[in-house]
């Protein structure tokens, strides 16, 4: 073998961000049975159980029917679960010392977070697609095609708030099974945010609901079903929690890299 020449060494482009890592991360995620059940199968089952009965299919709601309303809600719920699990993978990786191992490679913290965010968004997309594809095949939900597409896109892209939430919690709770804690928390937040059942605006519960993190995403995702202008409070809610969770994740991460 040749003699080592330190001066010939290069730095990888993009801080080490690359497709190989993304592919392996996705494969790893799909290998995890618990992740698949909670993020892909459960929202689909919830839609089939709650949303696709005959009376909901006959009741009109906005430009579609109640089944469509529930389909959008379950797609949003799936996206939230998927994005959170994707982000929360850092908890597991920190607990196992993998984050420290990665700090001994050229991978930059920004590239690492970007990879995690992309993986969680891809899982969120898979979850939204699963609910929607089953909804189309099942045939109970009715809404105009553009509503179908817009609602799916909003549910998916809005879930980036929960990628940040997952990352924040992942850095806050260094445990191998952080989703066991976050799963029930998200179910509660989904109820408060109006994903399980409609919450009357203007009531005490309505005011509380408007302050919780899933509220903005839930109403924005269902907004294409009704049309008109989105309420400012939905957008503000989404942006507020995005700033809180991104800020929290960045704060915990900077603490973490100070001494891994």
């Amino acid at each position: 073998m040749s003699v080592l020449d330190p001066t010939a060494r290069r730095v990888p482009p993009l801080g080490g961000f690359n497709v190989t890592v993304l592919t392996i991360e996705l494969r790893r995620l799909l290998r995890n049975r618990r992740t698949i059940i909670f993020t892909l199968i459960m929202p689909v089952l919830l839609y089939l159980i709650i949303g696709s009965n005959a009376s909901y299919a006959n009741d009109r709601e906005g430009s579609g029917n109640v089944s469509a309303y529930i389909l959008i809600s379950m797609a949003a719920y799936g996206a939230v679960l998927a994005a959170t699990s994707g982000g929360a993978m850092v908890a597991n990786e920190r607990a196992l010392g993998w984050s420290r191992q990665l700090r001994l490679t050229p991978l930059s913290p920004v590239a690492y977070i970007l990879t995690k965010a992309l993986v969680s968004l891809l899982l969120g997309l898979a979850s939204v697609l699963a609910v929607n594809v089953v909804g189309v095949i099942n045939g109970k939900a009715e809404m105009p095609t553009h509503v179908w597409i817009a609602a799916g896109l909003i549910a998916w892209l809005g879930s980036i708030v929960f990628s940040a939430f997952g990352l924040f919690m992942g850095y806050l709770l260094p445990s191998e099974n952080v989703m066991q804690v976050l799963g029930p928390v998200l179910a509660g937040l989904a109820a408060l945010g109006g994903l399980w059942f409609p919450i009357e605006p203007g009531t005490v519960l309505g005011h509380i609901s408007a302050c919780t993190p899933i509220y903005g995403l839930a109403y924005l995702a269902r907004w294409p079903l009704y049309g008109g202008a989105p309420h400012l409070v939905w957008v503000l809610n989404l942006l507020f929690w995005l700033v809180v969770f991104v800020g929290g994740a960045a704060w915990r991460m900077s603490k973490d890299t100070a001494r891994v």
């Binding site: 060494r9 290069r10 730095v11 990888p12 482009p13 080490g16 690359n18 190989t20 890592v21 392996i24 494969r27 790893r28 290998r31 995890n32 990786e93 196992l96 010392g97 993998w98 420290r100 191992q101 990665l102 490679t105 050229p106 991978l107």
Partner: peptide, 21 residues
Amino acid sequence: GGLLKDLTVRETVEYTASLFA
């Protein structure tokens, strides 16, 4: 520590290799 339990041995090496120039 420093290893992911749910990767194969080859995936672990490929993952690490992809991070270097």
